[in-house]
Write a protein that binds this DNA or RNA. Sequence first.
DNA 1: CTAATTATTGACTACTTGTTCCATAACTGG
DNA 2: CCAGTTATGGAACAAGTAGTCAATAATTAG
Lengths: 193, 193
Amino acid sequence: MARPRNFNEDQVLDIAIGVFREKGYEGTSTEDLVSAMGIGRQSLYGAFGDKRSLYLAALRRYNTQSVTELLDVGRGASSPMKAIEAILIHFVRHHGRPEAAACMGVNAICEFGTSDEDVLSITRQSGKLLEQSLARWINEARGKGEIDKTIEPKAAAQFVAAALTALKVAARGGAAPATSRNIVAYTLRSLSN
Amino acid sequence: MARPRNFNEDQVLDIAIGVFREKGYEGTSTEDLVSAMGIGRQSLYGAFGDKRSLYLAALRRYNTQSVTELLDVGRGASSPMKAIEAILIHFVRHHGRPEAAACMGVNAICEFGTSDEDVLSITRQSGKLLEQSLARWINEARGKGEIDKTIEPKAAAQFVAAALTALKVAARGGAAPATSRNIVAYTLRSLSN
DNA sequence: CTAATTATTGACTACTTGTTCCATAACTGG
DNA sequence: CCAGTTATGGAACAAGTAGTCAATAATTAG
């Protein structure tokens, strides 16, 4: 029994994600946000609290969507090892696209380090989810004989996750597509024998 | 024939590096800088121009020192392949140290992406130098039969450089030392057969 | 329709930002 | 010692910052 919102919360949150991803937390002003999101200042504060809360909400949403998308790519593969491959190649395929040009998750880690408890916890959560899924696939691949028995699923998963991070930083820095391909190729090489 | 500087330029630049590395460009205020560097505002502007110029000078110095240190570690090794190993292990050994907790170079890439021409050029230059040196060692290792003939020095060098990037981001995010060890182990695994 | 509740709008505030001005201090070649 | 030059310190400034206020608009339960 009150006036309804004039905007869709998730929709404008996606816009905020785009701004934060491109300019970082400190580099983004509330003016940047309201003008990009197309809502009034008070609406922003009413719906999201303050700048930091908005950032955290954006980061949560970004990371969740990001990992979900990646896992979906993996699930679409025809075998466990193909899942790992597909996830890595996914980055090469989307190299240079604006959405791939900056990972909000990696940027958050670099900007805040371990100084912000909340940022850290969001980052850790999605990192853990990704690693666990990768480890599961690697373990299955090992069981099926797709990869060597000497490979430790958990350690290898951390390695693959690290490769994903490196791919994101490379893309952010404007690396050539061939560079991404090379990184993927040698990452897979580590597992393939 | 004029009043001499009251401070050592490189010395205070090193302090600026520390501040920028921890807080990023946007996250650092001139107040942060002058109070950390222990010099007056006007001295800072007189010696370094403006905030951006100071940042660029700091980034140049950081990257140069960083790559130099890494190459020195490699040169101290007993064989080409040991050089690659030593460089990677170097990160594991220094894991958690404040100086390793944040890489100004990686942070610069994440914060600016490809938007700042000058940052990009500084980053590219040291990246190129590192990659070329890595490629040279890898090529020598291949010639000596330390690694497989199917390994392409340039591509593998990009892969190793990517691993270094990932190690830095992992450390920045407060990853456990074991994670770094795993990343190094699987990076080497890719080359070792 | 009315009352209650929430959203929107735009002006406003207190503060921080990067940068500059200016008077003074320290130095050196002549 | 003097004149010229550069460094320093502190105050000052205009622009930008995150966040708030108060009046108005839109909605619905009764």
